[in-house]
Amino acid sequence: MLWSPTPSDVPRSGRPAYRVGLDCYGHDMQTRGSSAALSLRGLSKAYGPTLAVDRLDLDVPRGSFFGLVGPNGAGKTTTLSMATGLLRPDAGTAHVLGHDVWSDTVQAKRLVGILPDGLRLFDRLTGLQLICYSGLLRGMDRPVVTDRAHELIDALGLAEAGGTLVVDYSAGMKKKISLACALIHAPRLLVLDEPFEAVDPISASTIRQILDGYAASGGTVILSSHVMDLVQRLCDRVAIVAAGRIRAVGTLDEVRCGMSLEERFVDLVGGQTDIGEGLAWLRR
């Protein structure tokens, strides 16, 4: 099966497990939950009659660069929102480095940096102010926040735009400034929803460098995307989500089964329509 147990190189903290039992693949769950950077159990969310996320289990090992891929409407954003405390699940639990997101909220939120997709920013602030706002809201010291904000702005190539209102930024610049906001408190887990959408290739490579460095130093990155190519190049672990459930999860090679990620994805998710002779009117 595609599920792989916790890699041995990840240290185990020996914390008591919060749920004992075997998962559906017969693996001992005790061994994975405690050392996971993010651990989701039975997470569910329904919007009216529509089940967006359906009893989803997922473990993201510490230090991994984890890609969450899935078709539109698969529940990626809903899952990540529930995992980070932005959206209350109907059922199930989410743990960040052992802290329950929905009961040990303060600790869990301190450890996570979030870049959400499709949510607004306080766009009447300048870029610099927005980054500082994120830091100060977290109760950090102003001198530290200011120093880091300037560094982040330089690193992300936003030095020119630091004093411009965020409302005047391009979509790509907004992504970069959001990333800076997510990084300001040096989180242990980064949850990025569609971080490369609308980002130009140069900015994308800057962001990749930052994320690579972060992951190499022991941080954990989870990102969602529907650009398979990018996930394939960046991530060492992948989960394929469809219709609110995990369809495959593991290291990149385990999930790919020798194919390209895209082929494997289409293979698993299916549902692509064969146009055949349809849309004839479009091809005059």
Partner: peptide, 9 residues
């Protein structure tokens, strides 16, 4: 944009 308040707790 209120998410910033929720995310930072």
């Amino acid at each position: 944009a209120f998410w910033a308040h929720v995310a930072t707790g």
